[in-house]
Amino acid sequence: MEIADSRVKVKRLSDTKKSLLFLIPSLILLLIFFIGPMVLTFIFSFTNLALTGAAAKHTEFVGFENFTRMFEDPEFRTSVWNTIVFVFFSAILGQCLLGFLIAFMMKEKNVTFRRIVGLIIIAAWVTPEVVVGFCWVAFLSDNGTANWLIGLLGFKPVAWLFSFPMVSVIIANVWRGTAFSMMVFQSALDEIPKEVEEAAHMDGATRWRIVTSITIPMVKGTIATNLMLVTLSTLGVFTLIYTMTGGGPGVETTTLPIFMFKQAFVSYQLGYGTAISLVLLAIGAIASLIYMKILKTKV
């Protein structure tokens, strides 16, 4: 018995070693392309690293100066607030809720219908972000479709990107991102056994009761995962906002990624920019922790 045991152990050990051997290349890649830049970002955020000017030649450690400056900077506070508004309305309310609703309404519908509707929604998602940005700029421009439509109703044209910049970018992002949530929820909803809902129906539960007491609890894990994925990807949205408004007018649509880009590449202050990116990372981590805590699921 004992001999057999040790044989298994030897075999296992060599298996671990073998798998390690195979893992090494990807570990090296991870180190070079993920961990390395992260460590560098951390180090640079404590320096006055600049793209040009004397600081580019003589980079020095400046302690927490970038961070104190950030918290004193009203534009930073505005950007954090804009980021929260943008993520809440476009990711959580917009994409997740709308995605769930569409998936729910398409449940058990005719296959052809599902395919056609699904295709249309996914088309928005597979379109490159910069193209989506330009489509929306054209749609909302002075002579764009949006103004033509409200013109039919007798309204005067509106300078959408100037008068309602945040609403415009939120709607554009919802339009683009809903497909992802819809697909995630669709697959989760399809997994729910029909019998459970039918049984509840037989017991006299209302449609609303079935949704709140059976459907949602059964896809809770998916909701958590989806919320987290969508929040994290929306926190990082840059291209869409940059092509539509460039963060303006003023700082009205400047979210943290745009603020970071402006400080690092428009004002040439790379050190300050990396410090902002660290804060963005922290916000993402905190948001993920909160989701896991609230929904009590392991992801």
Binding site: A50, L51, T52, G53, A54, A55, A56, K57
Partner: peptide, 8 residues
């Protein structure tokens, strides 16, 4: 000036 000071 900025690029000269940066040593570029």
């Amino acid at each position: 000036n900025a690029d000269a000071n940066a040593g570029y």
